[in-house]
């Protein structure tokens, strides 16, 4: 029996600065295409990654540019997994309340849209903490 093939992964670590967002989103988009997604889906994945990394830089690190954000792209069977790690307290998955778009339209307000985009554009979004690090894991299946 053959040993299972380990998923192919690529890692990128960036300073916690928004100037590097476009570098990360460009990589995520290209990775999505390589995984087998069409251009429209790849664009959605890249936006979700932009939102997730922005959350880390602006909300977890409060804009402090002295930290690092680790991004891992993992090619698994029929899916792309994206892991984003940072080293301060992250979001607790059970405390997240996504805005309701229909209510949002009735009562527009600024903010709260990034998580909604992530959840709409990805198939799965999870938050976890382990070994002193916080993780956002997003999965997009290839159809």
């Amino acid at each position: 029996m053959k040993a299972p093939v380990a998923p192919e992964t690529f890692q990128l670590t960036i300073p916690s600065q928004t100037r590097y967002l476009n570098l990360v989103t460009g990589l995520a988009k290209r990775a999505s295409v390589v995984a087998g997604m069409d251009d429209a889906t790849a664009s959605k994945v890249s936006i979700a990654v932009d939102e997730a990394v922005t959350n880390v830089i602006l909300h977890a690190y409060h804009g402090d540019s002295e930290h690092w954000v680790e991004i891992e792209l993992c090619f698994v069977t029929k899916a792309l997994e994206i892991h984003i790690w940072h080293t301060v307290d992250g979001l607790a998955e059970n405390e997240i309340v996504l805005p309701d778009p229909s209510e949002y339209v009735k009562h527009p307000r600024k903010g709260g849209l990034g998580l909604l985009l992530m959840s709409r554009f990805m198939d799965e979004v999870h938050f976890a903490e382990a070994n002193g690090r916080s993780e956002c894991c997003m999965i997009k299946h290839v159809r």
Binding site: S46, D50, T54, L113, L116
Partner: peptide
């Protein structure tokens, strides 16, 4: 592309 930051600016 435009992220939620841009949409927030419009809003």
């Amino acid at each position: 592309y435009i992220s939620s930051a841009g949409l927030g600016a419009i809003m």
